[in-house]
């Protein structure tokens, strides 16, 4: 038996698009291909590598950013879709040398190990606390169910978010 793997129909990139947006409070602009994800734009064009690529299909949450106040997996958002938007990434959580309470609590509560999922968890947790400053444990677990940790710090992550919520109130 013989089998030939045929080339898939190719989608040729069209010319790059100029996009302006706000990232972590700063106005930014870039050129990107229409098919580039916001994740690729952040990492490869804006030099913000805090958001990670774990799966590139929306199942691990490592690439989470906040887009106009809503947590999204940036691998599932096109760069061009972010035109005019306000984007918050993990790099924007700390204000100068002052860590966000979530960052501080993740450190003190040992809620991170290898750390590659940590930016996604922090961003998702911030989106939760922005909306609900005093979430129940169940709400935390539900809200962060889209973020995967393999090492795995789940138990301590929940405690850290609870402690950050207390620190905020």
């Amino acid at each position: 038996m013989s089998h030939v793997q045929a080339p898939e129909a190719s989608v040729r990139p069209t010319k790059n698009v100029h996009v302006e947006l706000t990232v972590n409070g700063e106005p930014r602009e870039f050129l990107c291909a229409p098919r580039e994800s916001l994740l690729d734009v952040l990492r490869n064009r804006l030099g913000l590598t805090g958001a990670k690529e774990g799966c590139n299909n929306g199942n691990c949450g490592a690439c989470a950013v906040i887009l106009n106040g809503v947590p999204v997996n940036s691998c599932l958002v096109l760069g061009v879709e972010a035109a005019g938007a306000e984007v918050e990434t993990v790099e924007g959580l700390a204000k100068g040398s002052h860590l966000h309470p979530l960052q501080q609590c993740f450190l003190e509560d040992a809620a991170l190990q290898c750390g590659i999922c940590t930016p996604g968890f922090l961003v998702s947790a911030k989106a939760l606390l922005d909306r609900n400053p005093d979430p129940s444990e169940e709400e935390i677990r539900l809200h962060l169910a889209g973020n995967l940790c393999r090492c795995t710090g789940y138990d301590k992550i929940v405690r850290a978010v609870q402690d950050a919520a207390k620190a905020n109130t």
């Binding site: 913000l48 959580l93 700390a94 993740f106 991170l112 750390g115 940590t118 922090l122």
Partner: peptide, 21 residues
């Protein structure tokens, strides 16, 4: 003791191999 590399990991500053560009 809190990890000495914790701030780098929690701030997005830590560079993994996939971040080297």
């Amino acid at each position: 003791q809190t990890r000495i590399d914790g701030v780098a990991k929690a701030s997005g500053a830590a560079k993994y191999s996939c971040d080297i560009n």
